[in-house]
Amino acid sequence: MTFLEFDAVRKHYGDHEVLAGVDLSIEKHQVVTLIGASGSGKSTLLRCVNALESITSGQIRLDGDVVSGPGVDLNALRRRAGMVFQSFNLFPHMTVRENITLAPRKVLGLSRAEAEARADELLERVGLAERAHYHPDQLSGGQQQRAAIVRSLAMDPEVVLLDEITSALDPELVAEVLSIVRELARDGMTMMLATHEMGFAREVSDLVVFLEKGVILEQGPPEQVLVDPVEPRTREFLRAVAA
């Protein structure tokens, strides 16, 4: 059954059309990977899901509920759709644990003890239990990104949006972040991710979507889109990325 649905989604910045009519259906527990060149609209599409960007026309539905357009309860929507950013965006004035417990306490109304117990459990899972009391600037990029993933998971989201989460990392730190995403996929988390890591996309995705100039040129299972694409543009892009 369709869980997250894009229906003719368009997005303009003035005259510039970033999304030019996107139709896409995602099922629960699916991992969907967006690939495409910079400026193809991957990030914008992700940011439209949790309404960090508003769409110009079309409709986005989450579990049957329309979550685009005016009058949507944005705070409620964002509780359901968590997001992890390329540049981590941890709060620099808080420790890792405070970063993670802030929203559960203030938004979900958890007590400090409940929130901290949950944060510590999640930190344990990503191997950061020892770093709970550190400030972000005392951590490596990989550790910061793992903490940022935990921060979004602590809200118990129904879908997680991952926006090029390894692009700002030194190459040797990419693996530790991807292994967490792999684990989440195994646990059945619904995820949408924009990435340039083609090998990882092939391994973890249920559906790969190739975007170009704001439209979906091709979509399908990874072994088809990434190995034997139909569209010449997709083939060209994959060759460029592999080089």
């Binding site: 949790n50 960090l52 944005l74 705070n75 409620a76 964002r78 509780r79 759709a81 968590g82 997001m83 950013f85 965006n89 941890l90 709060f91 802030l102 929203a103 203030k106 938004v107 921060r151 979004s152 809200m155």
Partner: peptide
């Protein structure tokens, strides 16, 4: 952006 996407008002 990070704070709002956690559902914080």
């Amino acid at each position: 952006g990070a704070s709002r996407s956690l559902g914080m008002s």
